[in-house]
Design a protein around this nucleic acid. Structure first.
Length: 296
DNA sequence: AGGCTACCGTGTGAGGCGTC
DNA sequence: GACGCCTCACACGGTAGCCT
């Protein structure tokens, strides 16, 4: 059976499962009048704290959840979806591994040439929930417009962190230049990042921001976009939509490159590269010259 | 007035390191 | 092995400053 996308049900399952190993106090705010809530409601004016104990739970749960979501896709490539992948050559040390990667061997430690796709997971609790300790019931009491939290990719600093981590991989060595990088979240993105995600895609730094939450809002909203013009952001509504897009990204034999050169120098590089016989050879020569690699 | 950015600070668990 | 100490990443609340 195909895995399911993110939804209220999946979020409920997170709380149910995590309550088996954590206390309600670790997962919910306790309001002045004794209610257990996932977020402070917008109109709540009582005493507030910032919950810290939930962070690691939601982080590791969603990373494993994405690993499971991508496993059928990995199988198509006779590969594996692995959690916390380490590859020192491209800036993924023990302290900051790739959340999830599709790789050729079922190990955490990887060589750059065995990595088919890198995934940065940025998922939050999206809806607000009330927990009833007596019955164990969980009631969804509103979408993210009804609470004070600013979940997932709707936060600018979360976007910046995802972008920063991707840049860090791109500048850590040419070995990362063939590996696609994507960001997976469970919310839309802010309007001010629409152009930026398309530019990041065109510039080759991040191949896409995907939300795997088809219905994040209870009411229709102009902010709940399907995609940006260049599909730098895409809301995935069906699991196959995700698989087809990622399949395409993995199969494309693309190369990231960037520079800052005087036109004269750039022109010279193009002229020399153009002496090669085929388009592919021209491209290879161009990249070698651009990167200042001696001989071959 | 309200929306948004991007910064800072927060508690917790995990992992590395040195010392007993 | 046990212990303390340190550093880090995690997600989110607060907020000054800016724009509309």
């Amino acid at each position: 059976m195909d895995p399911r996308l993110w939804s209220k049900d999946e979020e409920r399952i997170f709380f149910k499962k995590t309550l088996e190993i954590a206390t309600p106090e670790q997962l919910f705010y306790l309001t002045d009048n004794g209610r257990f809530l996932a977020y402070w409601p917008k109109k709540y004016k009582g005493k507030k704290t910032t919950l810290q104990s939930r962070n690691a739970f939601i982080g590791s749960y969603t990373e494993k959840w994405i690993k499971d979501l991508l496993t059928p896709l990995a199988r198509e490539f006779e590969a594996y979806a692995i959690h916390n992948v380490v590859c020192d050559e491209i800036g993924l040390g023990e302290r900051s591994p790739a959340d999830v990667a599709i790789v050729k061997t079922p190990k955490r430690e990887q060589k750059p040439e065995d990595i088919l796709l890198l995934v940065e997971v940025k998922m939050s609790i999206v809806w607000n929930w009330e927990y009833h300790p007596e019955s164990g019931d969980l009631d969804c009491i509103g979408d993210f417009t009804t609470h004070q939290g600013n979940p997932g990719l709707l936060r600018s600093d979360t976007m910046l962190k995802a972008i920063g981590k991707s840049i860090n991989i791109r500048v850590s060595g040419y070995q990362s230049s063939k590996i696609p990088i994507i960001v997976i979240g469970n919310t839309p993105i802010m309007k001010t990042y629409y152009k930026k995600v398309d530019f990041l895609k065109k510039a080759g730094i991040i191949q896409g921001f995907y939300s795997v939450n088809p219905n994040p809002l209870d009411k229709p909203s102009k902010n709940n976009i399907k995609s940006t013009p260049e599909k730098g952001f895409l809301r995935v509504d069906k699991i196959n939509e995700l698989y087809n897009n990622l399949e395409h990204i993995i199969e494309e034999d693309k190369e990231f490159f960037s520079s800052m050169l005087p036109k004269k120098e750039l022109g010279r590089i193009i002229e020399v590269a153009n002496r090669e016989p085929t388009y592919e050879k021209k491209a290879e020569k161009f990249l070698i010259l651009l990167r200042g690699i001696k001989n071959e």
